[in-house]
Design a protein around this nucleic acid. Sequence first.
DNA 1: CTGTTGACCATAATGTTCAATTGGTCATTT
DNA 2: AAATGACCAATTGAACATTATGGTCAACAG
Lengths: 190, 190
Amino acid sequence: MSVDRKRLIIEAATKSFSLFGYKATTMDQVAKIANVGKGTIYTFFKNKEELFDEIISTLISEMKREADEAIDPELPFHENVHRALYKILEFRKQHQLTIKLFQEEKEMGTPAVLEVMTRLEAAIIHYVKEKVIEAIKKGEIQACDPELTAFIMLKLYVSLIFDWEKGHEPLEKERIAKIFEQYVFKGLSV
Amino acid sequence: MSVDRKRLIIEAATKSFSLFGYKATTMDQVAKIANVGKGTIYTFFKNKEELFDEIISTLISEMKREADEAIDPELPFHENVHRALYKILEFRKQHQLTIKLFQEEKEMGTPAVLEVMTRLEAAIIHYVKEKVIEAIKKGEIQACDPELTAFIMLKLYVSLIFDWEKGHEPLEKERIAKIFEQYVFKGLSV
DNA sequence: CTGTTGACCATAATGTTCAATTGGTCATTT
DNA sequence: AAATGACCAATTGAACATTATGGTCAACAG
């Protein structure tokens, strides 16, 4: 069996998207990095956007895996949500690709990037929502709108981790957990 | 006494900023609308940005006045915070000028507009912060970091009023109050 | 003399053009 | 059958020309 060209292409594209962003990445460049003819890319992916989408799908899976790993079924719900969300946002804050895309979304508003970032947020909310539903079933928290609760949790976390830093000293991980316990979970406790 | 030219200029500029935004408003246009020589503007304001700043200061005062009016000292703290924040954000959502600026901030990132929007947010947080400090003094809520609490309240409100609508049915005013009571104030209750 | 003005200027924004680049195709090669 | 890269239409952006804009100031009016 010859080299796995699809894998080569995905790896090359990921590298290029991470380095230069979506718009600034050319298909020629991807082909060059992957040591592959440009036409080959189009035997695996309908177009540039579909290639991008597949990479984002992988990214979402990775996030999910990282979050799952951070969770310990023995711990209480609020501790696990904190761990999961913190991991996801740290991931987002550190990974080359997400940083670049976040930047491109704000600075250029590339439509394909905007779309994908929405998908990313939806995936995170969906993930948290499932955890909330589980917790309600187990009686760990009181009944509430899971979608709304997940939404509030994510927005609050993003604010605390990304926005607060703009005008203040960053909050310690422990501090964020405490804040969350006090403000959100006390209101959800049974 | 001749006509109050300064007032004319401010009114003209406010109208033009509301209609076309900061960048798209020219000093010639302001002078024309105000029925004033362009040079006159520069006897009252050092430059375009200072004129803009004065208008925003007025806007902030108006917001403060509206919020103060919405507050009823007889009511509990959480009800007043809800009323004040809701008024402020409704104001922001409905007033021509803030809508235009919000749009300009996102779409073009005009530096002067960005600066001013930061100032606006700081003013709102400062306002809420004072209310929080009062409430702590009166023993209405438990001790907490007033700045952080004000920050969280604003961010959550903004998320609920502006972001939630992007993917869902808008939340009723009463619903927002309930959510806030449940998620934030239960954690602050004494 | 005080307050006002608009023609004027340097510079920034905008429109225009066109050669180079890019995403995507497909006849040819391996 | 799989892979390729020359090729094409569409898009982009560098370079230049033109216009518009913020800000000044000598002249003017009351």
